[in-house]
């Protein structure tokens, strides 16, 4: 069972208190009607599915907040978590 740090609660808690919410940094287009079918497909369905560092979203069921995480999908280890809306972190910094 993974341990996950909620950046809002600033607490590290077991996975049972969290729900996975898919890949992060996929912004819903401001004007979907302007998109081609292919562009809309990419937004809806195409996923990085990274083997290695994966930027993803989780929801802390306790506080209800969605947040972002960088996790290594080979070791399942969390590299960092950060609040929704924040840019992808520089992971070298996060490792220190």
């Amino acid at each position: 069972m993974l341990l996950i740090n909620c950046p809002y609660c600033e607490e590290t808690l077991p996975e049972l208190e969290f729900a996975y919410a898919g890949e992060a940094h996929i912004d819903r287009p401001a004007d979907p009607s302007a998109l081609t079918d292919e562009e809309w497909r990419d937004f809806l369905f195409i996923r990085t599915n990274a083997r290695g560092t994966h930027f993803e979203r989780w929801r802390h069921i306790g506080c209800g907040r969605f947040f972002n995480a960088a996790r290594d999908t080979v070791s399942d280890r969390f590299l960092t978590t950060y609040k929704a809306g924040q840019p992808r972190p520089d992971l070298k910094e996060a490792a220190e």
Binding site: A21, R28, R57, R59, G64, R65, F66, A84, G85
Partner: peptide, 8 residues
């Protein structure tokens, strides 16, 4: 709803 409200 929370997902859209919080993140979009």
């Amino acid at each position: 709803m929370e997902d859209y409200l919080q993140t979009e």
